[in-house]
Design a protein around this nucleic acid. Structure first.
Lengths: 211, 211
DNA sequence: TTTTTTATCCGTATAAATACGGAGTAGCGT
DNA sequence: ACGCTACTCCGTATTTATACGGATAAAAAA
C-alpha cells in the first residue's frame, strides 16, 4: 500500500518541526517537503514530484495561503490542501472553502484530529470538525442576511455613526444636507435588516464593516 | 556555565514536540518536562526539581494557564513563566502580565524570538515584543477610559439595546418603567464616556461587554 | 442608448433618545 | 448603626432618529 505524500507549508519553523516530527512517527506518511512560504511550494511543485496532500498555513509573507489555494485549484487539481491556521473566524473558513481547501484545522488541533483529517482528505472527502462547521454556517448565515452591499458613502456615514456623531454633525462634516444623511441611514437600516442604529452598529461590527 | 532548565506546559502534543525539538538543538537548555496540563505541572514541581523557566499555554483543560500563573506567583517565586498563546487580544496579555507572566509570545513566534525571550527572562527581564506591547497599552488605555464598571442591570439593558429594542420595548420586557431604562442608559453613556447609543454599542463591543 | 444605481435633497409626521433636575427604598459594606 | 450603592421612578424640555412619501441628476452598468 502506497504512502501518503505530504508537504508542509508554514512560515514558522517551530510549527513545521512539530508537524514533521509527528508525521515521521507514522510509516504510512511520506514527508516530501517542509517549506516556509508559497513561492517555495510552487517552485517545489514545478521541479519535484507532487504531494497528495499539502498542510498549508494561511498567513505567510509574500504569497499567502489564499493565493496558494487558488493556484493549486487552477494548476494542480489532484493535490488536496488542508489549511492549518490560527484564525477561528468564520470569514477565513468560508474563504478557504471557496478557494479550494479540502479541510480546515486550527493550529491547536491534536494528533488524532490531524490524522483523521489527512486520511479523510486523502480519500477525497472534506474535513471540517463540528466547531469549524458551525462557524462556517454562522458566517454564511450572516452573509446571506445582506441582500445588498453598502455603498461607499454609506460606509463613510457608518464610520461617523460609530464615532458618535449625530446626523447634523455628519452633515456638517461631509458638507451635505442632513436629509442626505437621513436617507443614507435609512437605506443602511433596510439593507442590513436592522431596527435602529444600535443594532446597525452591532451588525456592522459582526460583518467587519467597521475595521 | 549551568544550563537553563525549562518545562513546557501545553495540552497540544504537536506544539510541545515542536518546542521540545527546538530546545534540544541548543545545549544551553535542559528540558526537564513536557507536560499536557496545569495539574501535571504542579505535581511535577512538588516531586521533582524546579525549572528556571516555564513555557506555558493559556487555554488548557482543567487548570488553565491563568490559574497556573497565580499559583506559581504565590508558591514558586523563583520560577519565571513565558506565556505562549494563540490569543492576540490585549485582554489576555494584560491579564497574564498581572497574573505574573514574565513574557508573552504568540504561537507563531519564530525560533530567534523564542530564544531571545528565554534568555531575557532568564536574566530577570520581561519580554514583550513591540506588537504585544502595543496591544497591551491599547487595552490598558481602553480600560483606563472606564472609571466605573457597569452594573448587572445596566449590562442587561445594554444587551437589549444591541438587539435593537427601544426604551419602551425594554421597559415592557423587563417589567420596569421607561424612566428606569432611561436612567440606566444615561448612566452607561456617562460611565463609558460616549455621546450616544451608537458609540456606546461600539465601545461596549471593544470592551467585550457584548459577548 | 437605455436602464439602473448612487447620491443628492425635500415635506410632513411621529417616535425615540438625551438632558436637566429631582426623589425613595432595599441591600450591601464598613 | 450609618453611609454608600444599586435600582427604582418622576417632571419637564429639547434634540435626534425614524418613517411615510416624494424628487432630480450624474455615473455606472447593461
Amino acid at each position: 500500500m502506497s504512502k501518503i505524500k505530504i508537504a508542509i507549508v508554514d512560515d514558522h519553523q517551530l510549527f513545521r518541526d512539530g508537524l514533521a516530527g509527528l508525521l515521521l512517527k507514522h510509516e504510512y506518511f511520506e514527508l516530501l517537503a517542509s517549506l516556509p512560504d508559497g513561492e517555495s511550494l510552487l517552485q517545489f511543485l514545478e521541479e519535484r514530484e507532487s504531494p497528495d496532500i499539502i498542510l498549508l498555513d494561511l498567513t505567510m509573507p509574500g504569497l499567502g495561503g489564499f493565493e496558494v489555494l487558488k493556484r493549486l485549484k487552477k494548476h494542480y487539481k489532484k493535490i488536496r490542501s488542508i489549511v492549518i491556521s490560527m484564525h477561528e473566524d468564520g470569514n477565513y473558513i468560508v474563504k478557504c472553502a471557496k478557494a479550494g481547501a479540502y479541510g480546515y484545522l486550527l493550529k491547536n488541533a491534536d494528533e488524532d484530529e490531524l490524522l483523521t483529517a489527512i486520511h479523510k482528505v486523502y480519500r477525497g472527502e472534506r474535513y471540517y470538525n463540528d466547531d469549524i462547521s458551525a462557524r462556517m454556517f454562522q458566517n454564511l448565515s450572516l452573509q446571506q442576511s445582506i441582500p445588498e452591499k453598502l455603498t461607499k458613502r454609506e460606509i463613510e456615514v457608518l464610520h461617523h455613526l460609530a464615532e458618535g456623531l449625530t446626523t447634523k454633525e455628519m452633515a456638517e462634516k461631509m458638507f451635505i444636507s442632513t436629509r442626505t444623511i437621513e436617507t443614507h441611514r435609512a437605506n443602511m437600516l433596510k439593507k442590513l435588516d436592522v431596527k435602529n442604529t444600535a443594532e446597525l452598529i452591532k451588525r456592522a461590527t459582526q460583518l467587519h464593516l467597521l475595521s
